[in-house]
Design a protein around this nucleic acid. Sequence first.
DNA 1: CTGAAAGCGCTAACAT
DNA 2: ATGTTAGCGCTTTCAG
Lengths: 348, 348
Amino acid sequence: MSRPTIADVARLAGVSKSTVSRVLNENMHYMRPETRERVAQAISVLGYNPSSVARSLISKRTHAVGLLVSDISNPFYADVIHGVEDVAIARGYDVFLCNTNYDVKRGAAYARSLVAKQVDGVIIMTSNVSDEWMQDLVRCQVPVVILDWDTRCLPGGVMRSILIDFDAGIQAAVDHLLSLGHRRLAHVSGPLRYPTSRQRLDSFLHALSRRGIDPASVTAIEGNLRIDGGVSALQKIMAMPNRPTAVFTANDLMALGMIWSAAGKGIQIPEDLSVIGLDDISLAGDIHPPLTTVSLPRYEIGRLAMNMLLEVQNDPAILDRLPDRHCTVQSGFSVRKTTAAPCTHVKE
Amino acid sequence: MSRPTIADVARLAGVSKSTVSRVLNENMHYMRPETRERVAQAISVLGYNPSSVARSLISKRTHAVGLLVSDISNPFYADVIHGVEDVAIARGYDVFLCNTNYDVKRGAAYARSLVAKQVDGVIIMTSNVSDEWMQDLVRCQVPVVILDWDTRCLPGGVMRSILIDFDAGIQAAVDHLLSLGHRRLAHVSGPLRYPTSRQRLDSFLHALSRRGIDPASVTAIEGNLRIDGGVSALQKIMAMPNRPTAVFTANDLMALGMIWSAAGKGIQIPEDLSVIGLDDISLAGDIHPPLTTVSLPRYEIGRLAMNMLLEVQNDPAILDRLPDRHCTVQSGFSVRKTTAAPCTHVKE
DNA sequence: CTGAAAGCGCTAACAT
DNA sequence: ATGTTAGCGCTTTCAG
């Protein structure tokens, strides 16, 4: 016994399919309560459930959106996803989660599949975006909201972006470090082929030069945004002859890697080395010592993204009325316990 | 300019829709290479992408599955999701991620929505499952794979389950603790209204009595499977007059909570208290001290779930041939650094 | 080897 | 107030 269709209901109720359709989409013209009742009966007897596939074919809407992230095991995304999902569910949408795993090919495959599935929109939150992905999305005019990416290089699409202003938070972090007396600083970046990695590095360097510190004096280490990236960065730093007394990492995960491997090696944090992360994942406040970090409104970013998507989707013309195709969210700074004054007498 | 349809391609190539359809589904009859070539041209010129909505209407398949999890911020799920997704993508499926957030209502809403979307199957990995969810799934004969749940209470559906044999891992953990000399033990469980919480507790108790320890001697604390649950459990334990020297938690997250809050209070782990978790999330080996824990093959569970789903889905009759509707995965045990002999002289 | 025609389950004019 | 008709984009007989 297969799923009942609208025709089955109509037959059982002794009416036409359109009548059934009308009681389904209540907004239509009035009808005899008696008829409506008979149809309702038939529906519940059959356990009828309208096929959203058939509906989508007509309405061109699927009430589904795609969400591309680069690393689902990064707690940063857990919070963002939460935000996306909360507004999605409130508005009757479902979310296709697509984990690119930092793999551009996979991202492209997902983009294609999402287009084929005719999702009503796509949210992109990956560190690297390939033009290749965008082709299908742009051509089919799929509404897109993209996080932390310069959309000027992505013309023609129904596209909005959420930009992150890292400067405020990073400046606060730098000032904090400077006021503590640190002068030899290091930065562990993400892969430098990701624009956002460069952006975070530049923001750090600028914040420094704004305070009269020579950017050339900072030790820059390229990491991978994962825990083990922090582990090996720490190794490099500790091996330096005149090593930095404080390090700023491009994300929290790498900071955690440093902190934990430091503990394993008997290196004291913050006494021997101050560390500051970026993201403020919820773990950051839980660990010991709790991580001082540049904070991002993760849950809000998720909500915002989904809301922006629904906005364009319900009214694509909004893009022409809007002054800007992007929103900017601010970074903040949470001082916790992984920073302290440098311990000058320890010059091994 | 809207999405190109098969008719557009046909027109441009100067052939009929059926011919285009044939080159799309390559398996069909031979055709003149010249024609095939012309169609291929047209397809790429237009950037044509067949509508999977229209296809689904005919084939009754959406190539999408739903994945219900209870807490996306638990790294355990990150690994499982990874496994599900890897086989999904390899087989051309997309995944609807549904995060119930431990909310039964939300789970029900998701189940309904997934049925309406006509997903080809659903994977359920939530600690608590309501019969309410199942009604729609069962009625529409949606294939379901469910993790860590006794399916005997869920009759009638196209349903398989993955059971976890906690006993082996937990027995190893108990033996490890006993051989270290611990006699006063505690268990921090999940909410006891979740069957899996009881199961883990019982398994622990049995392992103990199997070694001649009175189960009544263990301190049982009901937790919430989250970090803060571990934090408050530690508080309770440390306040006890003749406190346990070792604690086994129902999941790693609570163990992490204990470890970190212990560090903040100057409690030494494992010297003052041994702790053993369960899950073996990837963080477990990264933190300091690395967590001794009962391990589960998380990624493999994800792969297995998706594979089992595909299996029933491609051949629902398989259920009648199979000796069992369930698979069992084994737990293991990873000794790391959060366990040590009890420090008897410290009897505060 | 290719085209014409009939639907899949539903909605939306247009009739009645 | 309800029924009829014509598709949505695609696959699939069945002819040619």
